[in-house]
Write a protein that binds this DNA or RNA. Structure first.
Lengths: 211, 211
DNA sequence: GATCGGTTTGACCTTCCGGTTAAGACCTTC
DNA sequence: GAAGGTCTTAACCGGAAGGTCAAACCGATC
């Protein structure tokens, strides 16, 4: 009887975590295409067969990585929502948490985007969590967007998320066209943060006085 | 001496176009991962070797497909910009053209997103065009966003593009969480269109009277 | 020191990938 | 109908992928 090879649940062994971390590092460096049992094992300095011994399959390993990302993300957002304040302040808090998390977890966006746009095998997982996070965020936004239709909370959520997420995806990919500064530098990120906050203020303003 | 196998320039043969179209159809159905010389050939009903006979390599075929998408997209945007009107009207026109193009070319977004987020082999091509389109759009937006910093034209462009693009990427991926209606139905798309227009109006409003 | 369990490894299997090649089919043109 | 280019195909190659397996390792326990 194996101890680690229980593939129905997630193994919590040191080795298993080590492989998970190796996969995450690899994802950040080489993208999703660079992920393979061979590559993960090499990165962790062990034999390829260990990946299957601890995780059963590459699919389960990658899915676990995805779940870990989502768990961290949802916790970050929930914590941000727990802070008291006016509705506007709470939205600003949410944005900050969102940006902070993206900044600290560069591989997260990559794998999610990859799955969604590439009809990847883990799409159901992504789908489920996208729904969950929409509920979290839309619950707050519904407070300031009573109307249905064009200003429905789901639209606001999607746009908010889009403005945050696409910065990390596209600003670095624009190269010199973005500007002289590195989009991932502290000052650039602060500028983007200010932009998103400004947009939200514009929303609030326009919702209050749509002239 | 070959006639079609001139791999330095793009072949314009019927067969070559047929393979290109097959690749595009395949991209829409199965995503970028589903693309392979084998799959493209099978889809077109011909032998795999023809892909290499006409295109030299799968990389060149896919790159040509990408270039074709971008050429169409840039033409659509340029045409939209040629329409006369107030600044606000022209921005609304630009949004409409953007949305129309995305709606009509579902594979486009998929391959671009895939390349950018997956550090794909065609990233340089994407990078170049992202820069070009930024110039096109930012040139217009600069007229209404004089300020540097948080409201710089490049931020407005990125946010605009994000709100359009992410709808097609994420709304369908949210499943039931998005709502009862199919996000790609005519009425849903019209609602999204109204949303983006509303956001732009909010921007203009807030730029004029930032209180 | 023999045994026993969990751990680790190298060697191997199948499948699919991009790509090549030699030969056959086809279609003009003389 | 022979010639010669164009088009198309089956067969093949090397490499890398996911995955399996039996054997070797190794630290406990008796």
């Amino acid at each position: 009887m194996e101890t680690a090879g229980e593939h129905t649940k997630e193994p919590a062994t040191d080795r298993a975590q080590q492989l998970l971390d190796a996969a995450e590092a690899l994802l950040i460096e080489d993208g999703y295409d660079g992920l393979s049992a061979q590559a993960v094992a090499r990165r962790a300095g062990v034999n390829k067969a260990l990946v299957f011994y601890y995780w059963g399959s590459t699919a389960e390993l990658f899915e676990r990585m995805l779940e870990r990302y989502y768990a961290r993300h949802e916790r970050a957002l929930t914590e941000a929502l727990a802070v008291e304040g006016t509705l506007a302040e709470r939205v600003h808090h949410l944005i900050d948490a969102y940006l902070d998390y993206m900044e600290a977890n560069r591989g997260y966006l990559r794998i999610v985007q990859q799955q969604v746009s590439g009809l990847g095998p883990h799409l159901p997982v992504v789908q489920r969590h996208l729904g969950d996070m929409m509920q979290i965020s839309a619950g707050l936004l519904a407070g300031l967007a009573p109307a249905n239709g064009a200003t429905a909370a789901r639209h606001l959520h999607l746009s908010l998320s889009a403005m945050v997420v696409n910065y990390f995806t596209y600003a670095p990919a624009m190269g010199a066209a973005w500007g002289p500064d590195d989009p991932m530098s502290t000052t650039s990120l602060a500028e983007r943060r200010a932009h998103v906050h400004w947009v939200v203020d514009a929303w609030l303003n326009h919702l209050a006085a749509p002239g």
